[in-house]
Structure formats: structure tokens, C-alpha cells
């Protein structure tokens, strides 16, 4: 009896031995993949399906086909959010040249430069909630530094966040602060790896300043630029925290972006319109997918080249 079971165990052990090269990857990938499937992949499809329903999150779900999407199309708040997302996207791109500029400025080896580099990077480490509070204080009417400054220059102070003409730009400026720091770090690492012999050769040929930067350095910084653009686009489209902290979408909804409007529709005191919220999220998702696909496509090319 005992010998039979040990035999079976040995055989099973043998099966594992023989097949472990085939089974091991499955075993190693399964726990992580399962978690990711349940919490990330499946919810994406679930959201897509919810977007075809009228649903308050608790009661019965009512199928309305493309009803939510049709409504989006004529919803001025949605269109304004979309427009703001576009403004975010365009202005956020300033982080790329600005980050490069600071990186070039700091790419020296003088005493204490390491501390300077890390202090310049500082804003990225702080949470966006804190960044939002800092800038709210900076912009505050009556006593904010910027308000005082504009009062000195123009005679009347501008309360940026209370003015629907400027509020979005005020928030974007706050967002750029940590984003520039991030891009700067990417470029500092990139500059470190620029081939010194090429730079020397170009120098012997008389290249310097802008010419050197444009024709010799920037082409070599391609990988850093690529990552910088990707993280900046993603950052711009993900913007939620700052809007929520600084204006809650106001004044009069003028600073809403898709991510915030979705949250407002699905979960805030304005109501629990989960289906409608999901439809907004799906639109945002497809906008982002354009950029994500580009990223994946480049990775795929790099992988298959190797």
C-alpha cells in the first residue's frame, strides 16, 4: 500500500521533472496575471458593457444601446471637458523642452551639483494633493503671491482659480511643475549616455551651441525623448488629482476634464449615473489607446529586432 503511493508520488514528481520547463512559466506567471486579469483587464470590458446601460449602481440595469454616447455628443459639459483635455495635452508638452533645458543647465560637474539635481527633482516626489494645495495657496485671492504680483503689475489682482478664463491654465501650470522635474531626470540620464567621441568629433568640425544640440545631441537623446513624451501624454490625460483639489471642476465647470467629469457623473453628489460615467471613461480610454498602441508598437519592434 505504502509502496504504491510512494510510487505514484515519484511518478508525479517525475512528470514535474520532465515537464518543468513547460510548467514553470505558467506557475510563475499565474498569480500576477490572475490579479491583473481580475482588477485591470476584466474591468475594462465590464466598463464597456456598462456604458450601454442606464444604471444607478444599485438598481436594475436598463439596456439603452448607444443612448449614453448619443447624449454625450450633445452634452456641453462633456464637450468642454474634452476641449480642456486637449488644452492639457498641448500645454503639457511644454514639459519636454523645459525639462531638456533644465537638464542641460544642470549637466555639469561642479561641487554640490548632485544635491542641486535632486532638489530640482523634488516636486515629482511630492503627492499631487500637496502640489495642488501649494498652488492654491500661491494663487489665492487677496493674499496669494501671484495675486499680489498681478496687483502690482496691472493695478487689480487676478484670482486665477476663480476666473473661468484662466483657471484651467492655472491648474496646468501646477501640473507642469512636477512633470518638468520628471522629464528633466529622464534627460539627465540620457545626457549621461551621449557618446563623448561623437560630441568631440562634432566639436572638431566646428559644431557648437544650438547646432550641436539639434544635430548631434537631440538625435542621441531619442530614447529619452520617447519616454518623456509617453509619460507626459499619459500624465496630461490622467489629470484628476489637481482638478479635484484645486477647483473641483469649477468655476461653472470650466476646469473639468474627462477624468473628473466621469467621476462627478458616476460617484459624486451630482448622482450615481454609472452607465453615463462609464461611457465617458470609454471615450477617454480610446483616446489613450492611441498613444498606448504607439508605445506597444515601438516595444514590439524593439523586441523583434533583437
Amino acid at each position: 500500500m505504502t509502496s504504491v503511493t510512494t510510487n505514484a508520488a515519484a511518478r508525479r514528481h517525475g512528470a514535474w521533472r520532465r515537464n518543468q520547463r513547460r510548467l514553470a512559466p505558467l506557475m510563475f506567471v499565474a498569480p500576477g496575471a490572475l490579479m491583473f486579469l481580475v482588477y485591470v483587464v476584466a474591468p475594462i470590458f465590464r466598463s464597456m458593457s456598462i456604458s450601454f446601460y442606464d444604471w444607478d449602481g444599485m438598481g436594475a440595469m436598463k439596456w439603452i444601446g448607444f443612448g449614453n454616447y448619443v447624449e454625450l455628443w450633445s452634452d456641453p459639459a462633456f464637450l468642454e471637458s474634452l476641449e480642456n483635455n486637449l488644452i492639457w495635452l498641448v500645454l503639457y508638452m511644454l514639459a519636454v523642452p523645459a525639462g531638456l533645458f533644465i537638464a542641460i543647465f544642470l549637466n555639469q560637474s561642479v561641487r554640490g551639483i548632485r544635491i542641486y539635481k535632486s532638489l530640482f527633482f523634488f516636486p515629482f516626489v511630492i503627492s499631487q494633493v500637496v502640489v495642488g494645495l501649494i498652488f492654491t495657496w500661491f494663487y489665492a485671492p487677496d493674499f496669494g503671491l501671484l495675486f499680489k504680483l498681478s496687483q502690482m503689475l496691472t493695478g487689480h489682482g487676478i484670482a486665477i482659480l476663480a476666473d473661468e478664463r484662466y483657471a484651467t491654465y492655472g491648474i496646468i501650470a501646477a501640473g507642469l511643475w512636477p512633470q518638468i522635474a520628471y522629464v528633466m531626470i529622464l534627460y539627465l540620464t540620457g545626457l549621461n549616455n551621449v557618446a563623448p567621441d561623437q560630441v568631440e568629433a562634432a566639436r572638431l568640425d566646428g559644431a557648437k551651441g544650438w547646432k550641436m544640440l539639434w544635430y548631434v545631441i537631440i538625435p542621441q537623446l531619442r530614447p529619452a525623448t520617447f519616454i518623456a513624451v509617453v509619460v507626459t501624454v499619459i500624465g496630461a490625460l490622467r489629470s484628476f488629482d489637481l482638478v479635484s483639489i484645486m477647483t473641483q471642476g469649477g468655476p461653472y465647470g470650466s476646469t473639468r476634464v474627462l477624468s473628473y467629469y466621469m467621476y462627478e457623473q458616476a460617484l459624486s453628489e451630482y448622482g450615481y449615473r454609472m452607465g453615463y460615467g462609464a461611457a465617458i471613461a470609454v471615450v477617454l480610454f480610446f483616446i489613450m489607446m492611441v498613444f498606448i498602441s504607439g508605445f506597444i508598437w515601438k516595444m514590439y519592434r524593439d523586441e523583434t529586432e533583437r
Partner: peptide, 27 residues
């Protein structure tokens, strides 16, 4: 499916949080 699984991890990491919000809260 090695690369497919890898790319799903990478792409998933970049999706907007809002597309996960309702189902994850529900779950």
C-alpha cells in the same frame, strides 16, 4: 503568448483609472 501577456501588463499599466473605477468599486 509570452509577448502578448507582457504587452497586456504594459498596456494595462497606462489605462485611465476611470475605465476601471465602476467595476473595481463594484467588485
Amino acid at each position: 503568448f509570452n509577448l502578448v501577456i507582457f504587452f497586456i501588463f504594459v498596456a494595462g499599466n497606462f489605462v485611465p483609472f476611470q475605465i476601471l473605477m465602476v467595476p473595481v468599486r463594484d467588485l
